[in-house]
Simulated assay, not measured.
Amino acid sequence: MQYRDSANLDSSQVTSSSGGAGGRIAVGGVGGLVIVVLAVFLGFDPTALLAGTQAGPQQTTDSYAACRTGADIKQNRDCRFVAYTNSIQSYWGTAMTGYQPTTTRIFTGRVSTGCGTATSAVGPFYCPVDRIVYLDTGFFDQLTRQLGAKGGDAAEAYVIAHEYGHHISNLTGVLDRVQQAGNQTGPNSPQVKLELQADCYAGVWLANASKDVRSPIAAVTADDVARAADAARSVGDDRIQEQATGRIDRESWTHGSASQRQKWLTTGFTSGDPAKCDTFAA
């Protein structure tokens, strides 16, 4: 993924959190890979895995204030998270009438959210209560080392764009309707279709990321698209289940199979059109 050195970065869209160690954590009652199996890319209903709103003191800071232009990414690689977030929100600000900007909050270990207190074991997630995307960047090491993805900037950007896809579904009311439908699972469940819609929205952004001359993303290469698709496959329910347990249980799927996730990311990218992301009609 190539960055535009002259692009202005808005560091206020990315914050970091510290503290919050006093909270009670309830993320499925298990840890490590099992949590990844259950909750990787958690987004549609964080309250199912997040609990304990009594968090300890927590501070939110603008740790990315030094990220002012695209050129700063060369000196400080952390600035790429600002570039991803800015580009994603800039696109949706023009593509969606009434888009409401939010923030990406980077944390380490645990964080207090509007949906409860979460640990990094949950993986990246979107909380519809406070409308914030949460990310422990250590997940990207897990994506490559534990889940076998090739990784790279485009893979990271896909992860964040997926969570912002949930923000779009929240703003359109789709997320709320899925939550009200109950905790259904399986390859054709509303929950899976919601996750696939977020994958499609991520693909749409990827297709449009470099079209605005003000965007910090200067170019998206064929290798970038391949890495994003590879990341989508790596977090398919079937891939994760087989790696963790040696078996596949389709009826317990919450995010979709590797092929489903790649298909909808590709649909979004090849069309570049959010209207093509109606996974519920497919």
Rank of each mutant, 00 (worst) to 15 (best):
residue 2 Q to R: 15
residue 3 Y to F: 06
residue 3 Y to P: 00
residue 3 Y to H: 13
residue 5 D to R: 11
residue 8 N to T: 12
residue 8 N to S: 14
residue 10 D to L: 11
residue 17 S to G: 04
residue 18 S to H: 08
residue 18 S to Y: 12
residue 21 A to G: 14
residue 21 A to M: 10
residue 22 G to A: 03
residue 24 R to L: 12
residue 27 V to Q: 15
residue 28 G to F: 12
residue 28 G to Y: 07
residue 28 G to Q: 03
residue 29 G to L: 10
residue 30 V to C: 06
residue 31 G to E: 04
residue 31 G to I: 02
residue 37 V to Q: 09
residue 38 L to I: 08
residue 40 V to Y: 09
residue 44 F to L: 15
residue 47 T to A: 03
residue 56 G to T: 10
residue 61 T to P: 04
residue 62 D to T: 15
residue 69 T to I: 05
residue 74 K to W: 10
residue 78 D to K: 13
residue 79 C to F: 04
residue 80 R to E: 01
residue 80 R to V: 13
residue 84 Y to F: 15
residue 85 T to H: 02
residue 86 N to A: 10
residue 88 I to G: 02
residue 91 Y to V: 12
residue 93 G to M: 03
residue 95 A to L: 10
residue 95 A to Y: 10
residue 96 M to V: 15
residue 99 Y to G: 04
residue 100 Q to N: 13
residue 101 P to T: 10
residue 102 T to R: 13
residue 103 T to K: 15
residue 104 T to M: 13
residue 106 I to A: 02
residue 107 F to S: 01
residue 110 R to D: 04
residue 115 C to L: 04
residue 115 C to D: 03
residue 115 C to P: 01
residue 116 G to F: 07
residue 117 T to W: 00
residue 120 S to A: 14
residue 123 G to I: 06
residue 123 G to C: 03
residue 123 G to M: 05
residue 124 P to Q: 06
residue 131 R to V: 12
residue 131 R to T: 12
residue 131 R to I: 04
residue 132 I to K: 13
residue 132 I to S: 02
residue 133 V to H: 05
residue 134 Y to H: 08
residue 136 D to K: 13
residue 137 T to C: 05
residue 137 T to D: 00
residue 139 F to H: 01
residue 139 F to I: 09
residue 149 A to D: 00
residue 150 K to L: 12
residue 153 D to C: 00
residue 161 A to C: 01
residue 163 E to V: 14
residue 165 G to M: 04
residue 170 N to Y: 07
residue 170 N to G: 00
residue 171 L to P: 04
residue 174 V to H: 02
residue 177 R to C: 01
residue 177 R to V: 05
residue 179 Q to L: 08
residue 180 Q to F: 09
residue 181 A to Q: 14
residue 183 N to D: 03
residue 185 T to S: 14
residue 186 G to A: 07
residue 189 S to Y: 01
residue 195 E to W: 11
residue 199 D to F: 03
residue 205 W to M: 08
residue 206 L to W: 02
residue 206 L to H: 06
residue 206 L to G: 00
residue 209 A to Y: 07
residue 215 S to K: 12
residue 216 P to F: 02
residue 219 A to D: 06
residue 222 A to M: 01
residue 222 A to N: 08
residue 223 D to N: 12
residue 230 D to Y: 10
residue 232 A to P: 00
residue 233 R to K: 01
residue 241 Q to P: 11
residue 245 T to F: 14
residue 246 G to I: 11
residue 250 R to W: 03
residue 251 E to D: 14
residue 256 G to T: 10
residue 259 S to L: 08
residue 260 Q to A: 11
residue 261 R to S: 07
residue 262 Q to H: 06
residue 265 L to G: 09
residue 266 T to A: 06
residue 268 G to A: 06
residue 271 S to H: 08
residue 273 D to T: 12
residue 275 A to N: 10
residue 277 C to E: 05
residue 281 A to T: 11
residue 281 A to N: 13
